[in-house]
Write a protein that binds this DNA or RNA. Sequence first.
DNA 1: CTGAAAGCGCTAACAG
DNA 2: CTGTTAGCGCTTTCAG
Lengths: 330, 330
Amino acid sequence: MKVTIKDIAKKANVSVTTVSRVLNNKPDVGDQTRTKILKLIEELNYKPNSVARGLVMQKTHTIGLIIPDISNPFFPQVARAIEDKAQKSGYSIIFFNTDNHLEKEKKAVELFKSKQVDGLIVSLSLGNEEILKELKAANYPVVQIDRSVFSNSYPLVSIDNKNSAYQMVEYMLKKGYKKIAHITGDLKTTTARDRLAGYKKALNDYQVEINEDYIIKGDYTQQLAFEAMQTLLKLKEPPTAVFAANDLSAAGVYKALFAAGLNIPADIAVAGHDDIDIASLLRPELTTMRQPKYSLGEKAVSVLLKMIDNYEAEVEAQILKTKLVIRESV
Amino acid sequence: MKVTIKDIAKKANVSVTTVSRVLNNKPDVGDQTRTKILKLIEELNYKPNSVARGLVMQKTHTIGLIIPDISNPFFPQVARAIEDKAQKSGYSIIFFNTDNHLEKEKKAVELFKSKQVDGLIVSLSLGNEEILKELKAANYPVVQIDRSVFSNSYPLVSIDNKNSAYQMVEYMLKKGYKKIAHITGDLKTTTARDRLAGYKKALNDYQVEINEDYIIKGDYTQQLAFEAMQTLLKLKEPPTAVFAANDLSAAGVYKALFAAGLNIPADIAVAGHDDIDIASLLRPELTTMRQPKYSLGEKAVSVLLKMIDNYEAEVEAQILKTKLVIRESV
DNA sequence: CTGAAAGCGCTAACAG
DNA sequence: CTGTTAGCGCTTTCAG
C-alpha cells in the first residue's frame, strides 16, 4: 500500500516527529538518524502526502485561476506564464473556464474556497462585484487579471485599455482615415468598455464626429465580428477603416471582407488589438496593439504571492504598456 | 475565523457526526434536525473543507494534466474539453507544462502523486516509459492523450497518425505532386514518428522514390519549420509541395515561402495537420487534416473517470478519426 | 434517530 | 537530540 510517514518512522525506529523533522529540513536531528531516515525515504520511495500537510499547515500551495475560456487565443500565453511562475515558486494551478457566465464564476469561487487554494487569479465579468466583496471581507488573497470588476478591492494586473485603443485610433486618424468603425468586445467586460471609450476619445480629440452606426457591438469572437462587418458593409456610407476590439474579431472582419471581394487595406483598413499569434500570420499581416501577455501572467502571480505571504503588504495594480505593431492592414 | 463543521454542530446542539450526515445527504437524520442544520449552514455560509475530506476519503476529485505547452495552439481546445468534462463530473484540473522535457515530466508526476490527484491525463515524450511503468505498478489511473510512450500500459486517446498522414500525402500525390517534402514534428514524440511513417508509406505505395533530402527534422514549431523550408528552397531541385507535420509548422513554411516571393500553391503547395484555428485564417487557406481536439479531451476524461471508479474495468484505447479538410493551399 | 471514538497523514509545542 | 501529545476538519464504525 501507500507508504506513509509512519512506515518510515517504524522502520527507522524513531518517532514520526523525527521523520517530519528531516522531511522539513529542520535542525535538531542527529546526523546518523538523519542519514538513516533519508536512506529509508529513498528506498521506500516515500513522498509526503501534501493533502495531509495542507490540512495541518492550512496551506495548499495551490492557486485557482478563473478565466473565461482557455481556448480563446489570448489566454493560453497568460496561463502559460502563470503556470511557469507558479511552478518556480512551488505552486500549482487549478483552472476553471467560465465563459463570462456569472453563475459559473460564482461556482468557481466556491469550489476554490472549499479546495482551500491559497489565492485566486481572476478575470471576471461585470456584475460579479459581490464575489470580490465577500472575498475581501474574508481577507482572501486575490488578484484580478486583464479586467477589473471592482477596482478598489483587489489589485489589477492589466493594461491601459482606453489609452491603448486611443493610440491605435489615433494612428489610423493620422494615416488619414476618417470613417473609422469600431466593433466592440463583450461590453460585460471593462476592457471592451475602455477600448470603446478610447476610440471615442480619439475621434473627439481629432474633431471627427462620432457616427453611432459605426459602432457595432461584438463579443470578442470571430463570428460576431464577421456579422458585424457585414452589417457595416450594408451601410449607405460604409467605413473606410475598422478597429476591431481584438485580433480574433479582426480575423472575423477579414473573412467578411474577403467574402465581399474587398481588399485590405486598399478598400478598407483593419486594425486589431492584443497581437495574438495569428496576427502576423494573417494576410495582409494585421496591424494591432501588442499586449504583454506573458508578463501579465507573471506579474499576476508575483503580486498574488506577495499577498499570500503577507496580506498586509501594499500590493499595487500593475498597468503594463502596450505597443503599436504596424504591419500591413492599416 | 473560518467556520467548520464543529461550529455548526455546536450551534445546532448536535454532534459533528450528525452534521456530517446531512452534509452527505445520508438518511437517519430527523427532519427537524436536518432542517435546523441546513439553516445554520446557510446562515453561517459554511463550506466543507475538501482538503480534510480528501484526507479521510482518500479522494481529492482532482485530475492532473501533463502537457508540453498550453500555449501551443493544439492544446487549449483539448484542455478546454478536459476541464469542461471534468467540471461536469465534479472534478478539477491542475495543469503542468513540460516542454517535452523529461525532467519536468517526472517532476510533474511526483507533484501530482504527492497532491494525491485521483488520476492523470498525460502527453509525454519518448524516453519516459519508466514513469508509466511505476505508475502502473502502483495501480494509478492514467490515460495517455495525443501520444503514447508505452502503449501496452495505459489506454491512449488519440488519432491514427500514420494513417492520417498517409491520407494527406495520398491526396497530394493524386493531385499530381511528386516532389513532396516533409517537415517532421518533434521526433521525440510518437505522433511525429507515425506521421513520418505515413508519409513514407504513401510515397512507397505510389511508387514515388523517397528522397532523404526532402525530409527535414522539425519540432512542431513555426520557427524550425521556417528554417526547414529555407533549407528546402536551397536544394538543387526544390520540392513542389510540402507536407508539414502540423499547422504551426505549415505557418512557418508560409512565412519562408512569402519571404522568398513564392506563391502557394502555384509555386509550392503546402499541407498541414491538426486544423487549428489559424488554418482557415491563413491566406491561402490551409489544406490540412482535422483532429477532433475537443472530442479527444472529452474522451480522455471519460476513460479516466471509468478507471478511477473501477480500476479493473476494461478501458480501451480510443482512436478517433481525422478528416481531410481541403482548402486552398494544395 | 444520534453520538462517542477512532483515525486519515502530517506538523508543532512541550518535555525531557 | 528525540519522543509524547494534541490537533488540522472531516468521515465512519459501533453503540445506544
